[in-house]
Computed example of a mutant assay.
Amino acid sequence: MKRILFIVFLLLSSINGWAAAYVIHDIEESSVRSLTFQLSKLLPPDMTLLPVRRSLFEQNAAYIKDDDILISVGMESFRQVCESDSKGVVMAVFIGKEEYLKIRPQCSIPSSAVFSGAPIEKRLALLEAIWFDKKPLAVIYSQHLQVDEQAMSRQAEQYGFEFQFLKTETDRLSVLKSVNFVLDESMMIFSLVDTELYRDGIAQDILKLLFHKQQVMIGPSFAFVRAGALFAIYSNTEAKLQALAERIVMWQTKGVLLEAQYPETLRVSFNPYLIKAHGVVPPSASFLHDRYGLCSETRCD
């Protein structure tokens, strides 16, 4: 029945010329309904959003038209759209930059994205102001990321840091062995958005290990701070959807596909316990805003 309804909707949209975008996902129905509702408020009233599960999209990809917009939620949805025999354009959201760069070459249709996390240089700039241990920063990542180690190393040098890279398998034992190995020479893990690496509770296991070793992680999201990371620079859902809406409208009205990038509005959150334990003095809210363009818990203009 769901497949029939989906095909009928596509045929109707073709006949009536409705502007439509399809939200390809594999998340809870309540979550995707909320996400779709928030995004719809940022779009023109004639734009129709239709949530579609990944499995249903795969069955009906041939019905997608050249002017359709596919909004992929998460890394796996983006991968599936790129690997399908589809038309239209795809705009990825809730995906890391390095995840996007890994999958993008497989895309047979034009693509863009709104990245999760924050630019590496912005994270390094803030770290330079609060972290004075010059031991190498450990970067652990999986095969699902495209990491330019040389470019990242050059960025680190500009802020007085050095990166130590280690590519790992994503099973729990391999990840924890990798963490133990890199922490022999480092006090800190500089994490990237890596869905496969941190799934199934592995992130919590890493943070527990770091806590016992009195070492820390710079997280890619607020959830990591709550779980035990020192701090994270990130964007909230509202900022991501605003950036996504700008891309949808630009494509729909002018036929221009904006480049993949981070949202303009970024936030920073510190873990109060770890800040105190490691003697870190976080900048004031006004300094974070004026110097780094970051929203704090108390200020976001």
Rank of each mutant, 00 (worst) to 15 (best):
K2E: 11
L10V: 03
V23P: 02
E28M: 03
E29C: 00
S34C: 07
P44E: 05
P44M: 03
P45R: 15
F57H: 07
Q59A: 12
N60L: 03
K65H: 15
V73F: 09
S84Y: 06
V89N: 06
A92E: 09
V93G: 01
F94K: 06
L101I: 00
Q106S: 14
S112R: 10
A113C: 11
A113Y: 09
A113R: 02
V114W: 07
F115R: 06
G117S: 08
P119I: 04
P119N: 06
P119Q: 03
E121D: 12
I130L: 14
W131G: 10
Q146K: 15
M152N: 02
T168N: 04
E169W: 01
S178M: 04
S186Y: 10
S191G: 10
E196F: 07
I202S: 00
M217P: 01
F224C: 05
A227T: 04
A232Y: 00
I233D: 04
Q242S: 13
E246K: 13
R247K: 15
M250E: 14
L257T: 08
L257G: 10
T265Y: 08
V268H: 08
V268K: 08
G279K: 14
V280A: 07
V280M: 06
P283Q: 03
D290L: 06
D290I: 01
R291E: 15
Y292R: 02
L294P: 01
E297F: 00
C300S: 01
